[in-house]
Design a protein around this nucleic acid. Structure first.
Lengths: 240, 240
DNA sequence: TCTAACAAGGGAACACTGTTCCTGTCAAGT
DNA sequence: ACTTGACAGGAACAGTGTTCCCTTGTTAGA
C-alpha cells in the first residue's frame, strides 16, 4: 500500500462499552476477548489466533468481536501491552548497579515473552507505545541515567537493549512455541554441528574448525553473552 | 502444530529442471520465478508476494510454480539466499582492523536488505544456511579469529552481529517498504518527540526529560551506534 | 401499557490466501 | 507413427480478515 500513512497519534485507549443485550451470562467485552486470545496464543501459538478461533471459544460469530476491537492488528497490540504489563521492574535505580539492573530488565522481557508462546514475533514489528511499555522504558532510562551515562548514550542504549531482548525473544519463540521440545532443539544443534564439521574444508576452513563452539551454547548462555557484550559496550561508550 | 519437526537436514538445493514443453518463448524455470518474485518484493513488498501475483506476471497459473518450488516458504528462502549472495565481503582479514571489518560486514547486510523491500522480516525467522550465508559467516569468523578473539567469543559474537544486522534491517524495513517516505518518518519522529514531552511529568520524568535525545538520531547514526557498542563489547569480552 | 428507537449480536458473504487435484498438451524416444 | 511422460494450468478446497445487514433484547417515551 503506497497511500498508507504512519500511525497518526499514539492513543491510550479508553473505549468503554456497557453490556446491553444480554440476559446476563452472555457478556462480551474487550477484556473477555483479550483473555481468550491470550489463552489461544499461549496454548497454540500466534498462528492459531484467528478471529474465528476467538469467536468460537466465546460461542459467538467473528463479526461480534469487531465491536470491541477494530482489527486483528489492534487485538495483537493490546495483547502485547498486556504482556509487557506482566513485567515487574526492580526497585530504585542504584548508580553502582546500573549494569546489573539493565541486564535484569532485559531478562524480564525475555522471560515474559517466553511465557506467551510466539507472541514476541508480533511485538517485533510494532513500536510499543502502550502504557506499560512506557513504564518499562521510563524505568530503564532512569537506571542508565542514574548510572551516569550521558543522555545520548542512554537514548540509543535503551533502544538497543530493547531491540536485543525482543530479537532474542522472537528468535527463540520460533522454535519453542511450535512444539519443538528442548530435546529436539539440542538434537538439532548437534546435527548442525555435524553438518558444519562435514563442510568442505578448503572453502569453509573457519566454520569447520569452529563447528564445536558454533553449536555449543544453549539459549541462556547465548542470551547472557549478548547482554554482557551490550552492557560492556555501553560502559565503553560512556567512557568516551 | 505440535507434530512439527525441526527441519531435518540442511540441504544445498541443486534440483535442476530442463525445459520440455515450450515452443521457446514460454520457458518457466526456477530462476525466472525467483526473478519475478524478487521484482515484486522490491516494488511492492513482501505482502504483495503471492503465488498468484508471481504466476500472473509469468502469465501462468499458480499450480505451475509448484513444479519448481515446493512451497512459498522455500521460495522465500531462495530469495533470501539470493540477497545474501549480493553481499561483497571485503578482502583479506586484517588482524589490526577486525573491528572495522566486522562493522563493514554488518553495514553490507543492512544495505543489501534495504535494497529489497521488507524481505528482511522474512529472513529473521529463518536460520540462513544457504551457500551464500555460509560464505558470509565464514568470512566474518575468519576476521574475528584473525583479530585474536577467543573461539567461544567468536562463535557467539558472529551470531550476535548477524542478529543485530538482521534485527535492524527488519525494523527499518517495516516503515520503509510500505510507502513511508523519509519525510514521513522524520515527521513521525517529531510527533513522537512532542508526545513524549507532553507525558505526565510525575509518572514519566525521565522520558519527558529525554524527549529530545530519544527521538533525535535518524537511521544511520542509530545503526552505527549499536555497531560501535557491539564491537567495543566484543573487544572487552576478549580482554577477559 | 404499548410502541418506537436503539444498539449489540451474529449469520452469511466477499475477496483474498497457499496448496492440491486432475486433465490437457506438447516434445522427444522408440 | 505412436506411445510416453513431464510440463502446464484451470478449477476447486480449506483457510484467512473484514464488512454487510438483518435479528433481537433492552430501554425510553407516549
Amino acid at each position: 500500500m503506497s497511500d498508507a500513512e504512519l500511525p497518526p497519534a499514539p492513543r491510550l485507549p479508553t473505549r468503554e462499552t456497557r453490556p446491553a443485550r444480554s440476559t446476563r451470562e452472555r457478556t462480551l467485552s474487550r477484556d473477555a476477548i483479550l483473555d481468550v486470545a491470550m489463552g489461544i496464543v499461549d496454548a497454540e501459538g500466534l498462528d492459531a489466533l484467528t478471529m474465528r478461533s476467538v469467536a468460537h471459544v466465546l460461542r459467538t460469530g467473528q463479526a461480534s468481536l469487531y465491536a470491541y476491537v477494530t482489527s486483528k492488528e489492534e487485538l495483537i497490540e493490546l495483547l502485547i501491552d498486556r504482556v509487557i504489563g506482566e513485567i515487574r521492574f526492580g526497585g530504585e535505580p542504584d548508580p553502582d548497579r546500573w549494569q546489573d539492573q539493565v541486564k535484569e530488565a532485559a531478562r524480564q522481557i525475555r522471560a515474559v515473552y517466553a511465557r506467551h508462546g510466539d507472541l514476541a514475533r508480533a511485538s517485533f514489528a510494532r513500536v510499543p507505545l502502550g502504557e506499560n511499555a512506557l513504564r518499562g522504558s521510563e524505568w530503564i532510562i532512569g537506571v542508565m541515567r542514574a548510572g551516569g551515562l550521558p543522555d545520548d548514550v542512554v537514548a540509543l542504549g535503551v533502544d538497543l537493549i530493547a531491540l536485543y531482548a525482543n530479537a532474542i525473544a522472537y528468535e527463540e519463540s520460533i522454535y519453542l512455541a511450535e512444539g519443538a521440545t528442548p530435546e529436539q532443539i539440542a538434537a538439532y544443534a548437534e546435527e548442525m554441528g555435524r553438518y558444519f564439521a562435514a563442510l568442505p574444508v578448503d572453502r569453509f576452513p573457519n566454520i569447520v574448525a569452529m563447528a564445536g563452539p558454533l553449536t555449543a551454547g544453549e539459549g541462556d548462555s547465548r542470551f547472557e553473552f549478548g547482554l554482557e557484550v551490550l552492557v560492556r559496550g555501553l560502559a565503553a561508550m560512556a567512557a568516551g
